[in-house]
Amino acid sequence: MGDRGTFGESTWHGGYYELAIEVGPRDDGRLQRALTAVWSAADVQGCYGDMRRPPEEQDPVGCTVESLTEFGHVLGQVRLPTGHIVACGCMTIREEGDTPVDWLDFYLPIGALEGAGLDIERPQSYRSPVLDHWLAAIGTAVHGAVAFRAGFIGFETSGCSDAATLGGELPESRRIGSLLPVAGELRYGPANDDS
């Protein structure tokens, strides 16, 4: 196993631990504010566009919606609560249709998390309370900058749910963590269903 903060081939294998944010109606300005807030709240170092080359071998790119569009993602390095530095990234999903919606997905590759001092529960689904609470704090900080519709935390959470499905209430049983604005306050419901 190499350095978890590099962009080696093994870094990106195994899926992703995510904070998937339903930002809201399509709007470049709102999406940019959310991206900037994620990078700041997580204290991501650097911003790069090529996952095949180490950060020191590429020029930085702007942490912008334009870079997300051009490269499909932006990448950096982040210090986990365990003290380990790992690779991370952000991508966007811009839904089409009658009411297009922007999503912003901040992710940590499982290949980078291996050996990063985390007590992973249920390895088949990569549940980590340490990461869940850290990502919830990042989501809370982002919500202070951009009032998003919902956020979902855990292994491969992108596309698992949305604000409309939650209907304004955190479910009692949750296989993934959820951030949801309720009565003007952002509430966090950690994952609690081990089935």
Rank of each mutant, 00 (worst) to 15 (best):
V101H: 01
F106V: 04
Q58V: 08
C90S: 13
P54S: 11
R53A: 13
L68K: 06
D119S: 10
A112W: 04
V86R: 04
T69S: 11
Y107H: 12
M51T: 03
V44R: 04
L113P: 11
S67R: 01
L80T: 02
V101E: 10
G83K: 08
P100A: 07
V44E: 10
E66L: 00
D50A: 13
Q77Y: 00
V44T: 15
I120W: 08
G89F: 10
V86T: 05
D98S: 15
Q77P: 03
P81H: 10
L118S: 08
G117C: 09
T99Q: 14
R53K: 14
D102V: 01
T99L: 14
T69K: 12
G83Y: 09
Q77L: 01
G72F: 13
G76M: 10
C47M: 09
P109H: 03
G117L: 04
D105H: 11
V86G: 09
E56D: 15
R79N: 06
D50L: 08
R52C: 06
G115I: 04
D98Q: 10
V78E: 03
P55T: 08
V65R: 06
T82F: 13
P60N: 06
G72K: 12
I93E: 06
C47L: 05
V78Y: 02
R94D: 12
S67L: 08
G111N: 11
F71H: 15
E96W: 05
V61E: 12
T82M: 05
V74F: 05
M91T: 11
W103Y: 13
M91E: 07
D59A: 15
Q77D: 03
A42E: 05
L68W: 00
V101C: 12
A87F: 03
R53V: 15
V74K: 11
D119P: 03
L68M: 04
R94K: 15
G49H: 05
P55I: 06
L75R: 00
C47A: 11
Y48L: 14
V65W: 01
P100W: 02
Y48F: 15
W103R: 08
L68D: 00
P60F: 04
G117N: 13
F106Y: 14
C90I: 11
G117H: 01
G76K: 02
V86F: 00
D59F: 02
C88Y: 06
D50P: 02
C88W: 01
H84V: 13
G89V: 08
G97Q: 05
L80F: 01
Q58C: 04
H84S: 15
D105K: 00
D43H: 15
